[in-house]
């Protein structure tokens, strides 16, 4: 199989990449890891006239840390996160999530920012980064703007990016308290789309009460979702079986799954409940065992 014919550009600077996007707009697609774009082009689900390959733009590589955040360059591959154990100290949810994505070969090419821009509701990063309260920086002809991941994802395969904007990086806030995290995913086989995914991170204050919590849900709505009511019920309370069951029920209620060949809506909703309960229970044990930031 091969895609429709297209013109290929490989800019070597960010300005050049933005210029090309401004010029070709809707006729262009940005190629980062290509692990969703190229299969879609081969299946003729996408047929851009221009492919703008950003892999030779050095400004988009690498990552840096500030006092209160980790900033991932747009070309950060899933495997670069998966293999970096140093991230666990401050950002425990990132490696948890990276290791569940697709398969190891796809993870060597696919990028965090590319996954967000593709906006597949079953994507693992969207739920994870929503749970973490992350934002993307988008560069357009007018300059940079910061977009929270929740505002970036508008609908299935649809983002709030303008046609001439490109994601340059992803900003992940550093937890203020002790944090522990868990990612869970049900898939029929390695590499298949998720049936259900849950990514969650909990921070606790000195008394053990929850001071921040993010619960992201994948594959159970038109975009990744954040289970806000489940988060609210946990705030200010120590994790325990009762409040965890309460939160799990609220997360299941927040899910908006569709029945398809991967399962009925009712089944998927119940998997959300089970995964949130399992995830929060795992986090409770990790916090108690001291496998967490600041412990």
């Amino acid at each position: 199989m091969f895609p429709n014919a297209f013109d290929y550009a490989a800019p070597t600077s960010l300005d050049e990449a933005v210029d090309l996007l401004s010029r070709y707009g809707d006729d262009a697609k940005v190629l980062a890891g290509g692990q969703s774009l190229l299969p879609m082009m081969k299946l003729r689900l996408a047929a851009p006239a221009w492919v703008i390959d950003i892999n030779r733009v050095p400004e988009l590589d690498g990552r840096r840390e500030s006092d209160d955040a980790l900033i991932l360059g747009a070309l950060t591959r899933h495997s670069a996160i998966e293999w970096d154990r140093d991230l666990d100290a401050d950002y425990p949810l990132l490696r948890e999530t990276a290791a569940l994505i697709a398969d190891p070969l796809v993870r060597n090419r696919g990028t965090v920012a590319g996954s967000l821009a593709h906006a597949d509701p079953a994507a693992d990063w969207a739920a994870c980064l929503m749970a973490l309260g992350a934002s993307v920086t988008a560069r357009g002809p007018q300059g940079d703007r910061l977009i929270p991941v929740e505002d970036l994802l508008v609908d299935t395969l649809t983002t709030s990016l303008e046609l001439d904007e490109i994601i340059t990086g992803v900003t992940v806030p550093r937890p203020a308290g002790r944090a522990a995290a868990k990612s869970l995913k049900l898939e029929r086989k390695v590499g298949d789309f998720a049936v259900v995914g849950v990514s969650l991170q909990v921070e606790v204050g000195s008394g053990g009460a929850v001071s921040r919590v993010g619960i992201g849900l994948a594959a159970v709505g038109p975009t990744a979702l954040r289970a806000r009511e489940a988060e609210a019920v946990l705030m200010g309370r120590p994790l325990g079986p009762e409040v965890i069951r309460e939160a799990a029920a609220l997360a299941a209620a927040a899910a908006d799954p569709a029945s398809d060949r991967r399962g009925s809506a009712a089944y998927k909703r119940d998997v959300v409940r089970v995964f949130v309960e399992r995830g929060l229970t795992a986090v409770q044990h990790r916090l108690a065992d001291g496998q967490a930031l600041g412990a």
Binding site: Y8, L31, P39, L105, R109
Partner: peptide, 11 residues
């Protein structure tokens, strides 16, 4: 290691 059916020759 990468899946070469999902990489463009130009890349």
């Amino acid at each position: 290691p990468v899946k070469s059916c999902t990489v463009l020759a130009g890349q």
